Simulated scan of single mutants.
Amino acid sequence: MRVLAAMSGGVDSAVAAARAVDAGHDVTGVHLALSRAGGTLRAGSRGCCTVEDALDARRAADRLGIPFYVWDFSERFRDDVVEDFVSEYRAGRTPNPCMRCNERIKFAAVLEKALDLGFDAVCTGHYALVREGRDGLELHRAHDAAKDQSYVLGVLTAGQLAHTLFPLGETPSKALVRAEAEARGLSVASKPDSHDICFIPDGDTRGWLAERVGAERGQILDQSGEVVGDHDGAHAFTVGQRRGLRLGVPAADGKPRFVLEVRPVSNTVVVGPKEALATSEIAGARFSWAGAPALAAGEESACDVQIRAHADPVPARARLVDEHDGARVVVRPDIPLDGVAPGQTAVLYRGTRVLGQFTIDRTVSAAPVGV
C-alpha cells in the first residue's frame, strides 16, 4: 500500500512513519508548511510546524530511507484555521483550532491531495484506533488513556477513516514510543512535546488576539446588570474564566465570580457565581459522524459526552431533532456540565468508540432562576 506519512518533526510522527515502513508499505514522508513567516523557531517546547520541525522531519525521513517533501499549506491554514479562530473569538465564541486543523487541513486538504497523487492512505502519529465494526469502520480511543487524541479526531468521517492509519494507537505509553525512537537512532527521541496553539508559539493568546481583534475598553457586569469592573477587550475572556477579571466590586457573599457570558456586540462580559456555570443541555447544528451515523432523526440514545480534549466523559442522552433552521444534535448530560462556551466542540462516545461531534451553539443553564 502506498502511504503518505505526515511528519510534524516530533517523535510520534517519526515512529509512526517507521512502523508503516516496517509493515511493508511504500512510505513517503511529507511535512506541512503552515506558515510563511521566515525564521519562525520553536520557543521552548511550544508550537509546531516551525523551521526547526521541518529539519527534524527531514532528518527522520533520511534515517528511515524514505522520500521526503514539504507541502505548502500556509494559505489554506491561514484561511481555514487562523482566520476562523479570529472570527470565532470576535463573535464571542471559544473555538478549538486543533479540531479545525484536523478537519480542514490534515484530513481534508492533505488526504485529498494524497489520494489525487495515487496514495492509498495517510499515516499520522495521533494516538487513536481505527477498527472494523458491525456497520463499517469505527474510530476508538487509544490504549494509552493519558495520550488519547480521539477527541480532536472526532471530526473524521467514514470516508476519511478508510484512508487513515494510526500506528501508535495500541502503544501502552509514550515512554515506549520514545524508547523505540532511541533504538531506531531517531534524533527526535527526546524532543519535548509541542503544546498550546501552534500559531501562537509564545502562548500569549490574549496579546495575539488583541493585535488582530483590537483592544477596546468595556464593562464587566454582574447578572443584575450592575457594573462591577472593566476590561480591555471582551475577546480576552472565555466562559468559566476566574483569573484576571479585575473586579472592583466584591460579590455580596464574598465568593469568587466566574465569566458566565461574553457579549461581543456590546463589548461586555457577564460574571456570576460558579453555580451559574452549570449546564443541563447543549446543542449544535454543525455536526458529523465518525463512521456510520449514530443517530436518526427523532431518535434518542445513551452515550458519553466530552467537551474538552482532556476532560472526563460524562454520561448523557443524545437525540437528533429537526428544528426550523435544520437538524441539530441535542445532548442532556446526566450530571450538569461546567463552564460550557459556545464554539466548543462536544464529542460523543459509546464506550471507547467515537460516535461523532458537533460545535456547541446553544446551552441551557441548570442553575435555579436567580442564581
Rank of each mutant, 00 (worst) to 15 (best):
D135M: 04
K147E: 15
K147V: 09
H163V: 06
Y127L: 04
T164C: 11
P167E: 01
G136D: 14
A146N: 15
V130C: 09
A142C: 12
L168K: 03
P172I: 03
P167C: 05
E132P: 04
G125V: 07
G136W: 10
A162E: 12
A142W: 07
K174V: 01
L165D: 00
G154S: 15
E132K: 13
V155S: 15
L139R: 08
P167N: 02
F166Y: 14
L129W: 05
L161I: 03
Q160N: 05
G136A: 14
D144R: 01
F166A: 02
P172R: 13
A162Q: 11
T124I: 03
L129T: 04
Q149P: 12
G159Q: 08
A162G: 10
K147R: 15
L156D: 02
T171E: 13
T124S: 06
L168N: 00
H126I: 01
R131D: 08
T124G: 01
C123D: 00
Y127K: 02
A142G: 05
G154M: 14
T157W: 08
V152G: 04
G133W: 12
Q149F: 05
A142H: 09
E132T: 12
E138T: 10
P172T: 11
H163A: 07
L153C: 12
G133Q: 07
V130T: 13
R131Q: 14
G125R: 02
D148F: 04
L153G: 04
D148V: 14
G125A: 05
E170W: 10
C123I: 06
G136I: 13
L137E: 11
H126Q: 03
R134Y: 06
C123Y: 01
F166V: 06
D148A: 15
R141K: 15
T157G: 05
Q160F: 08
T171R: 05
G125L: 00
A158E: 12
L137Y: 11
L168Y: 02
G169R: 02
V155M: 14
S173K: 04
F166I: 02
Q149D: 06
L129G: 01
L165A: 03
Y151V: 10
V155D: 12
T157P: 04
D135P: 03
E170R: 08
Y151R: 11
Q160W: 09
Q149H: 11
H140E: 11
H140Q: 10
G136K: 11
C123S: 09
K147T: 13
L139N: 00
G154W: 10
A146E: 15
H126Y: 03
Y151F: 14
Y127C: 01
Y127S: 01
G169P: 09
Q160R: 15
C123R: 03
G133R: 07
A142V: 04
L129N: 08
G136F: 12
L153I: 15
